[in-house]
Design a protein around this nucleic acid. Structure first.
Lengths: 239, 239
DNA sequence: GAAAATTTGTACGTATGTATG
DNA sequence: CCATACATACGTACAAATTTT
């Protein structure tokens, strides 16, 4: 068994909820019944349920049970750490990626500060745009610390950076901090994006860290405002 | 003891991290040491640590320990369910709220669909704007199901809707689904907001549910684009 | 309305596996 | 290889909320 038991149970239950084998509004089997079904202890079941709860699949009510939520109109949360690849896979649109630049460079002062870089550290700069229906609507500018990612080719960037980083290099991504703002479009936006109406773009700045808490990537993702949409599921903490 | 033990431990540790009694980059005491310090079992400690991890305070590394993250520049996540009141409390600015409307109404077809309302159900409509430094920059339009919130006064809306709902009515909020988009400003935006440059606003639509999974509120929050900022901490799931 | 049964929430203990140093 | 520290899993007991009797 590669994965842990509670993750398998989580996957199985979330699948069933997606496939509507369990209706929204209905109750899941009780924890004890699930223990029997999956041959697991109650603690293991509860870990799987906590994960379902965090991700918006169920609502737990003490003394009652776990209510299945309507996940159909949830429209794939952009929250979490889903890469563009994963996102595009869930979307109905056809997307294409254009790689404009893959270069190794010495960071300027601003980037050194943002990424908290040491003297002598170099970074890969990757500039890509994403198009759908003949229009270029997203401009991504990634900076990756070379010590972590020694080599990078345009080919890898055209496919999926995260695939390469996680599967080829074996690095594991831990967490990210994101900030979303709206800013006036700059020269590059007008150059790389298909801008018609509107002079503003949505800017998503992310700092991405590995599992050992080491920062390894900074990304500035610029979206044509009318194509931008962010969906979030938020739970009042405690538990 | 009102709160559960692991929440107390979470609060204590998060406090210490905020106050820099534990430096960013340093390791927390080991789980066993924490067991001794707090006179708790390892499982209880681990629940507190999992909560710290989810909220961006620490990064757990197997075999090593729990690394304290830099929470200083984290700038209070707008993620989660923080109400405007709580948000304003964390902000350095001075905010004022203007209540423009508090009325009971029969929902139109659109609202009935969005809120999944039954025939005969009525809703409170609350329209408020938020101002800082003499400029009105946020326009909030809340719809609350009257069966859940029987009575509503302008006074309560001027103070804090959530305070009233959670503390006075004793209702507990469970979770919310949010969607963020950028849209052209409409008549009301020009009327209620101080719009200068820019013809677009950021629209945050939220469906808010109680702990028993019952929807009770729909909110459309319209922000002047140049004053909008959304900060998020995202973790790659598993655990 | 009250008591009993059911179901989830919290806490503790123990054992074993896995990653780090 | 070994010690340390975190990860997973099972089991038990009791508390708190809900539903049923």
């Amino acid at each position: 068994m590669r994965k842990s038991k509670f993750v398998s149970i989580y996957n199985d239950l979330s699948e069933k909820i997606h496939q509507k084998k369990i209706d929204a509004g209905a109750l899941l089997p009780t924890e004890n019944e699930l223990c029997a079904q999956y041959q697991a202890s109650r603690e293991t079941i509860r870990k799987a349920l906590a994960m379902l709860s965090r991700n918006g699949y169920i609502q737990k009510v003490q003394g009652k049970g776990s209510i299945v939520l309507d996940v159909s109109r949830q429209n794939f949360p952009i929250s979490g750490l889903t890469s563009f690849r994963e996102l595009a896979a869930h979307s109905k649109r056809q997307w294409t990626t254009n790689v404009h630049q893959v270069v190794l460079l010495k960071p300027d002062e601003h980037l050194k500060m943002v990424m908290n870089l040491q003297d002598g550290q170099t970074v890969w700069q990757v500039v890509r745009s994403r198009s759908t229906e003949g229009e270029s609507v997203i401009l991504d500018r990634d900076y990756l610390i070379q010590e972590v990612v020694p080599l990078l080719t345009a080919d890898q960037c055209a496919h999926s950076l995260y695939d390469y980083i996680e599967n080829e290099l074996g690095l594991k991504i831990g967490f990210a901090k994101k900030e979303i703002t709206v800013e006036p479009a700059n020269e590059d936006d007008y150059h790389y994006l298909t801008m018609h109406e509107g002079t503003h773009v949505v800017v998503v700045r992310s700092l991405v860290y590995l599992e050992n808490a080491q920062l390894f990537q900074y990304t500035e993702s610029r979206h044509r405002a009318d194509k931008f949409r962010f969906v979030d599921f938020a739970r009042r903490d405690h538990m």
